[in-house]
Design a protein around this nucleic acid. Sequence first.
DNA 1: ACCTTTTGTTTAAACGTTTAAACATATCAG
DNA 2: CTGATATGTTTAAACGTTTAAACAAAAGGT
Lengths: 334, 334
Amino acid sequence: MKKVLLRDVAEKAGVSIAMVSYVLNGQKTDRINKDTAQRIRKVVEELNYRPNFLAQSLKLKKTFSLGFVAADIANTFSSQLARIISDEADQAGYALIIGSSDESKPRFERLINQLLNRQVDGLILAAPEGSDELIKALQDRKTPLVLIDRYFPDLLVSSVSVNNYQASFDAMSEFITQGRKKIGILVYDTTLQHLKERMLGAQDGITQSHSASYVTHVIHENHIEQEVFAAITSMLQTGVDAIYFTSNKLGIAGMRYLMNHQIAVPTQVSTLFFDETEVFDFYPSPLPFIRQPLADMGKKAVELLFQQMNDSALPPESIILETSFVHSHSSFTQ
Amino acid sequence: MKKVLLRDVAEKAGVSIAMVSYVLNGQKTDRINKDTAQRIRKVVEELNYRPNFLAQSLKLKKTFSLGFVAADIANTFSSQLARIISDEADQAGYALIIGSSDESKPRFERLINQLLNRQVDGLILAAPEGSDELIKALQDRKTPLVLIDRYFPDLLVSSVSVNNYQASFDAMSEFITQGRKKIGILVYDTTLQHLKERMLGAQDGITQSHSASYVTHVIHENHIEQEVFAAITSMLQTGVDAIYFTSNKLGIAGMRYLMNHQIAVPTQVSTLFFDETEVFDFYPSPLPFIRQPLADMGKKAVELLFQQMNDSALPPESIILETSFVHSHSSFTQ
DNA sequence: ACCTTTTGTTTAAACGTTTAAACATATCAG
DNA sequence: CTGATATGTTTAAACGTTTAAACAAAAGGT
């Protein structure tokens, strides 16, 4: 079965290719004869004509597709974000091409190049460590672009993120009012600003309470499980009575430990997580956590990106969304 | 900063556009002067020329992109599959456009149309209920296409799936050797063959053991939580001592119930799941499940698809992969 | 010396659209 | 009845590549 072209429609309707194009795109409606238009539309229907996206894109210099490079698509955070962005893009008639850098800078760069080769109209990026210059270069090339989740303090780029510092700062009061005295903070060994801020916020929050101390353990990405286990072991030995997990994955590893070692939560140690996971549901006691407004983040990012695409002269805008503190995860979230 | 075109390279290198194209595509290598080729390559480098994918695709009638329509990308099963397929495609130089039908046939159809408009070179589909004719139509149009996970018994299309019937059948012996007498089976109200086979396999397995009976509860997709809760309540009242959850989501809902109601697993009721979830880790006792070979499924699907794309005359092939029975989920899977 | 190959390069059409500009005919004002 | 204007449609160039075919010059064979 041969592909139906504009030419085929034109031929069958007895008009020029241009006419068909005009009718299909709703242009020159005031000029075109109603009957002709009707006839063309009928033929289009009959032949079930579908425009060739490639040809259109080539001509219009617009592919109606966006690229999203996630940090690690295996992580629920990324995949939920991807889903939201995809839906959002979809509604605007855009397709989303998704990549995952797996936190590797070279891979990130490769993905971006691929996306640009494919002429995506804009990018939403969860940038890995050390990718600042790369982002800068993209910006210099006037590539419409929005950072999500991650941001670089000395880079003036549009971004959507959450109040990492403040949320962490505020959350510590939870431990304080519980009367916790020694708080363990688990962080990654990273230069990523948003993670550093989670740590700093927590530390400052504790310090300023004047009623508790903290100990920070730095975990390396490639040995999460082992290092988290070691960190918690050490913490418990040194009388830590509350633990703040600054990320998703750290939290999961931590809970696995506490579960396996039958540590009573929150009696023996109190816990707090940045980010939510389905697994929390399955812990016998409620596990409080800081929730990021995923849907808003995704929507805002797409919105910002579209703005950039429509007006490249627009100055970069940084949106910082509020997180919320959730005391107990309802069993009835679907 | 202007886009660098083939023309720009040609100009700077003092040759025709064709020469640059030939050199870049490694064609006519025997004819082209080594020095000229070298010079061209140098200019390409200097100008950092990137071919325009659209123009290439239009000319070559190949977009080097595949479409994957997942059943529900929010489900780990789908997203893991997506990740594998994406990686596999990537390695072959193909991009993956992902959609999620959310088990809705109209949405499925819309997504497929979008993907075809975008001229993807092939499709991998987790088809929702009742989409047989649609698949058939695609096949008639000679669209390279592979079904994954789901299949339609009377449709001769390439597909990759697992031994749903046999796996369920065999798994029941687990309950039998435990001496379980009344087994509850939780299934969806669906016409999807793979799910029906999971149910039938289990039923036949139990029947043929001559030592236990079963009761089947049908759950409707849109009220999973409530209906699963009701079903389990009813089962427990009628002396069911083992439950087989035929899917991921049913299992999660079920475990949530058992957890909340402090039902002892496996002492009071034994459980068995089709599919694995991270949440299983967080249950105090090990939860046995049937594992699908996700990676193999994804790889095979891509492989099959590429075969189809290379030779459209190839007859459809159905690959059925083996599942494995996992007794206890290791706490150290990353 | 002349024809044939070989080597190296260019020309030009094609892929399937969009759209400015040109064209043709009908309608209208004076 | 004529020039202007409104109405309806077509022509042709462009988007950025690929590639068959044509061309030109050098090398080889007799």
